[in-house]
Design a protein around this nucleic acid. Structure first.
Length: 426
RNA sequence: GGAGAGAUGCCGGAGUGGUCGAACGGGGCGGUCUCGAAAACCGUUGUGCCCGCAAGGGCACCGGGGGUUCGAAUCCCUUUCUCUCCGCCA
């Protein structure tokens, strides 16, 4: 969430930005500010009375100690009325703070000035594209048929064991998954990211820290017995490593990468968009996360984009990078680039990575701060993350785009992970 | 799952009703000494919010929530988590 200080200082900028994001309730900003004024004046009054109470209590203590019980009891009488007043003021102050917080969590992040206006993905801005479109045979197969043909993916089996959206990978399919994961992790660590293998379930505090809770509760699987949530992305456990942490400026930037399965309920999804691996409830993803100095976060964002781009180029997939327009931007993001690869057999673009700068928005929820050398006050860090990369759609595109009458010719970078004789899946 | 112990500042650890935001030790930072370092010595060292141009001041926080009391780290209730032993187990 945004800090109340930032909202007070930069009201106009924020309103301007929220317009780009198609925020429907700009009036909340004024409500916030007047609620904050209310809270402040309540705090002044409450604190004054509390100070008075503290003073009297101390006096009573001293009087009792020196044996002047009578005097002490007299002062005690005074406290009764003040105590009542303090209690009701405290209550009012707390209510006011809760209200303020409830308003605050409804305000999305403010988009970066470069974010184009617009409502849907049609308004996203093409940044660049690359890679050659494959020329496929008339009767090229979509990946779900290739998965069956080469015995790589078994969707029916997943339905039997668990349900729709839980594919079973087997044989070379399972191996290809593992190859991709290994290769991604290797590339990420080579780029300076520390590898993390985090828990796959998180508690409520973590869900709140990265913004999944309270709003997007329905998107996560919830283990009610223990009140834990299955992670929808490694971003959640990895970013929460730094919850309630004050770093030294020299520790920045922090760069982490993690492979995890991701679990998403995707309630309401249906139709051809969710066919095969296009949208599933459990999938594998390698994530990159950075904790950055605010002055460097956009340079870091560019660096992350270049890094992800390099991976996709190495896989030989036709791709494009788009900058999300205001309406398509997530609640917490200030700037997001989406990576899409072209799936030749489905004849459509598939989103395979989303790289975002959250600026201080997540950090404020997480209480993730750092201290500049010599400075007393800690300040909020910037957080960024991106997929590097999400497996299912990469797998779909790799299978579809590389199909030949002789089998599926895998990208060279994966050969060493697939093992000898597995350069082509037959 | 059963039994017990515990949760205090950057870390260790004291504190069982008043002057305790918290002894003491370690660490960090600044200084003295030194060519420099070590040692020793001196000083300093939590977070948030509020008032204030500032200097400065106030309030809250000793796992979370609630209660008793003029006054709670300390007493009571509740909750979460951690550790030890037993059981189970990859």
């Amino acid at each position: 969430m945004l800090t109340i200080q930032f909202i007070r200082d930069s009201k106009e900028t924020i309103l301007e930005g929220l317009k780009i994001k198609n925020f429907k309730q700009p009036e909340l900003i004024d409500q916030l500010i007047s609620k904050d004024n209310e809270r402040r004046s309540l705090q002044v009054k409450t604190n004054e009375l509390q100070a008075e109470m503290n003073r009297l209590s101390k006096e009573i203590g001293v009087l009792f100690k020196s044996g002047e019980a009578e005097k002490a009891n007299k002062v005690k009488e005074q406290t009764t009325a003040i105590k009542k007043e303090v209690e009701s003021l405290e209550k009012a102050f707390q209510d006011s703070s809760v209200d303020l917080n409830n308003l605050l969590v409804q305000i999305p992040n403010v988009p970066h000035p470069s974010v184009p206006p617009g409502n849907t993905e049609a308004d996203n801005k093409l940044i660049r594209e690359g890679g050659a479109m494959p020329e496929l045979d008339e009767n090229a197969l979509p990946h779900w048929e290739l998965g069956t043909k080469y015995r790589l993916i078994d969707f029916e089996l997943g339905v039997k064991i668990t349900g729709a959206g839980f594919p079973v990978f087997r044989g070379d399919g399972a191996r290809l998954q593992r190859a991709l994961i290994s290769w991604f992790l290797e590339e990420n660590t080579a780029a300076g990211y520390e590898e993390i293998l985090p828990p796959l379930m998180v508690n409520e505090d973590s869900g709140f820290g990265t913004g999944q809770l309270p709003d997007k509760e329905g998107q996560m699987y919830h283990v009610t017995e223990d009140n834990l949530y299955l992670i929808p992305t490694a971003e959640v456990p990895v970013t929460n490593i730094y919850r309630d942490v004050i770093l030294d400026a020299e520790e920045l930037p922090i760069k982490n990468t993690a492979y995890t399965p991701c679990f998403r309920r995707e309630a309401g999804s249906h139709g051809k968009d969710v066919r095969g691996l296009n949208r599933v409830h459990q999938f594998d993803k390698v994530e990159i996360v950075q904790i950055q100095h605010p002055s460097n976060s956009y340079a870091a964002l560019d660096e992350m984009v270049k890094h992800v781009e390099k991976l996709i180029i190495s896989l030989g997939l036709p791709y494009r990078i788009v900058q999300l327009c205001g309406g398509d931007l997530s609640f917490t993001s200030a700037l997001t680039y989406d990576f899409e690869v072209y799936s030749a057999a489905q004849k459509r673009w598939l989103e395979v990575s989303s790289v975002s700068n959250f600026e201080a928005y997540q950090a404020n929820r997480l209480k993730l701060r750092f201290r500049e050398a010599g400075e007393k006050r800690p300040i909020l860090a910037h957080t960024l993350n991106g997929s590097s990369l999400a497996l299912p759609r990469i797998m779909a595109a790799v299978l579809e785009n590389n199909q030949t009458p002789d089998g599926i010719k895998l990208p060279e970078v994966l050969h060493k992970y697939m093992g000898k004789g597995k350069e082509i899946i037959r």
